[in-house]
């Protein structure tokens, strides 16, 4: 399958490991991965912060880059960015009244996937041949859970990883309090949410907390580092890309 990677601006700039792992994993599974260099961001932060006009411009560039007949699937290591494309783009471009853009979005929506749902639902793979000898807990991020409905796809992938000990997270579906600019605009509430999430993570005794969104992991990881909690955050793609040889 010809897969175009949308690495997302967060992973590209701050957590390249998630993007690199996605490439290595998909290639190991025998797929051809491309990285359209003209890509930047999906526009989610702008839309969610109340800058719809900017978001529309960014969406326009996104569509231009990825609406390509040579691409079978667009895959991103992020639930929220994929949710932006699948859930928000149709309404955003409809309000703009651009019919050509609407048609392009309609083509793009069914071909855009978050990594874990792509592996499990599209490729039908659960065991990706990974090896990861650590105690891991999984935080289901809000957008992957409620907008994309990835369900237990990430958990099924993790359960198939050799040497990995998966520990259930208490109140797992509770939001970590990131929410983009919410984390600074409503810092007190965000902090209270983060504190509860970190407490639950630490209670598991896991060494690693994983998720399918770099942005949520940046929030949780930033909090855990500040507390010197001794728990690392690692993107799901990086766990799945790990092998015994490596």
């Amino acid at each position: 399958m010809r897969i175009a990677l949308f690495t997302t601006c967060v992973a590209d700039t701050l957590f390249p490991g998630a993007g690199i792992a996605t490439v290595e994993l998909l290639e190991r599974l025998g797929h051809q991965v491309s990285f359209p260099r003209a890509q930047t961001c999906c526009g989610q932060m702008h839309l969610n912060s109340g800058y719809e006009a900017h978001a529309l411009n960014i969406a326009r560039s996104f569509v231009e880059v990825f609406d390509d007949a040579e691409i079978d699937a667009v895959v991103a290591p992020s639930g929220s960015c994929v949710a932006m494309v699948r859930d928000q783009y149709p309404g955003l471009v409809a309000r703009a009244g651009d019919l050509r853009l609407q048609a392009a979005v309609a083509r793009l929506v069914p071909r855009t996937f978050e990594l874990s749902e792509f592996l499990v639902n599209e490729l039908g793979i659960v065991d990706v041949g990974a090896y990861y000898p650590h105690r891991v807990t999984y935080h289901p991020t809000c957008h992957s859970l409620r907008l994309l409905r990835v369900g237990d796809a990430p958990l099924r992938l993790l359960r198939a990883v050799r040497a990995l000990t998966l520990i259930a997270l208490d109140d797992a579906q509770g939001c970590c309090g990131f929410g983009g600019t919410f984390a600074v605009k409503n810092a007190d509430v965000s902090t209270a949410m983060l504190a509860d999430k970190m407490r639950a993570i630490q209670a598991t005794g896991a060494e690693v907390c994983t998720a399918v969104d770099s942005s949520c992991l940046m929030h949780i990881g930033g909090g855990l580092r500040r507390e010197r909690a001794g728990v690392r955050v690692v993107h799901l793609a990086e766990i799945l890309a790990s092998t015994e040889a490596a």
Partner: peptide, 10 residues
């Protein structure tokens, strides 16, 4: 108030 949400979707 519209900003008083992390947009978690619950």
């Amino acid at each position: 108030l519209p900003w008083a949400s992390s947009l978690c979707g619950a």
